[in-house]
Design a protein around this nucleic acid. Sequence first.
RNA 1: GCGCCCGUAGCUCAAUCGGAUAGAGCAUCGGCCUUCUAAGCCGACGGUUGCUGGUUCGAUUCCAGUCGGGCGCGCCA
Length: 560
Amino acid sequence: MKDALHELLLHALDRLRHDGVLDAPAPAFVIEPTRSREHGDFACNAALLLANPLGKKPREIAEAIVAALPKNHLVERVEIAGPGFINFFLGGAAWHDEIRRVLHEGAQYGHSHAGAGRAVGVEFVSANPTGPLHVGHARAAAIGDTLARLFSATGWKVYREFYYNDAGAQIGNLALSVQARIKGIEPDDARWPADGYRGDYIRDVAKDYLDGATVEAGGERITAKKDPDDLDAIRRFAVTWLRREQDEDLRAFDVAFDVYFLESSLYTDSKVQQVVDRIAAEGHSYEADGALWLRATDFGDDKDRVMRKSDGSYTYFVPDVAYHLSKWERGYKRAITELGADHHGSLARVKAGLQALAIGIPKDWPEYVLHQMVTVLKGGEEVKISKRAGSYVTLRDLIDMAGLDATRYFMIARKSDSQLVFDIDLARSQTNDNPVYYIQYAHARVCSVHRQMHERSIVFEQHKALTHLDRLQGEHARAVMVAISRFPDIVEAAADNREPHLLAQYLRELAGAFHVWYNAEQFLVDDEGLRNARVALAYATRQVLANGLGMLGVSAPESM
RNA sequence: GCGCCCGUAGCUCAAUCGGAUAGAGCAUCGGCCUUCUAAGCCGACGGUUGCUGGUUCGAUUCCAGUCGGGCGCGCCA
């Protein structure tokens, strides 16, 4: 709808330029839904933007533009208002066309081909396999997976990636912790490893190791050796054990990855070495204090960074650079890296490393999405402890307490860069307080109408109904049609700006418009034309709700 | 000290790359069920967008400063 108006305006501007009235390039004008109906349905600011370059009054320019606008059946009338806005009032036909589109395109409505099948890599969660996933990972999983779904819907070929830091010191710590448990050492014991993991799950890993259990994850199948002194065997068993647990939690959260990328593979494939060599060959490194440094300050970082420590091992960010290089080489036109905001310090050095390779990676690649902290609230008090993990609340805790749908919705309902309060009581409440139920209820209501029709043997013929849409009169039905028509724009904006919360907010609004209409008007009336028109609009609403919820990974139940 | 993020109604948050009179929900108060699900709807109340300047036709949005909260500033990850 917006696109159609955009076309009209471009035509008008072209004509003005051709006639010599307009002596400036077309400005980056916007067409946006208006806040108030007095201002029509959509407003355009082109004249305001042209006022300065042309040195004319905006209203004068607006008049010229309006005079040059081609006729279009969607537009009922055009007004110039305020300082020089061009306001479009659309006729019923515009909305009716859109409702027909919804019912024809079905599950595809709101999808686009903007991505043209290009590849986008979305990396998220990327937790160390040293413990259960926590609330932060829950937010990461919801944001990342929703973004992935949004990119899919907008025509991108999406690859979901999970990067395992399976090669660092943390893993050594994990092995030592499990070994301690195997030997019956408790976390408060003096012999407990310095930075050991204290959660109960370590005891479970130890027990399975001693029992000679077999675990499987990431295509790897390992049977425990039972030997308490074989630290390497313990390490491999523990990592696989925890990967399996994380996989299970993610599956329970309805998140699946296409690529599991192991940090350790970057070492075995010499990718880390190659990155360092390449950076050195480009002259962006130097030796000092027995270490090899990246001249990160050449690329906007605030200090230079050590790549190879004096003990010969690499700092963590070098494999990170190698990993992102791998994404680049695998052809990701766009790469999204979703991280907790506490990692933002590492962005500059990874980007510096990628630039130092001098292989033509754009400065704004990859794109980072950072999420802020999550505070969990229950009974009005902050929850900090999980029995299982010890020091933090787990993803599994959230799913158990609030359910999959509520957890996914709440985690993306706020802008990712603002801190989030996750209220368990609200998430599990089955009242209108809870936006998830509110939206799902709207969907279920349409399904209920559908069932009623069957029970009453009312026949609904879509092709006939679609010729009666002009029977939809009144503010309430109109508000629903307007809301429905916004969906494609919302999906596009949410994907382009990497802001899934836009979709969550929108669905709440659409459901609201529907509930108001539902309350005001009876759908299943005797007048066949009117009934068909209303049922068609209800079906269209259900379709959009289902499509939108699907992009959030939230279910659309047929009854509550 | 430096860097990044956030300060919007009592609370939780929106505001579509600078748009017109800043919007929802909750909470509070008052209404609506012999009609398709009341897990709903209607109404009222609620604001100097932390503060001070600047940029312009127009600023919650951009810039500078300031106050408050969070995070980060390792040869840890």
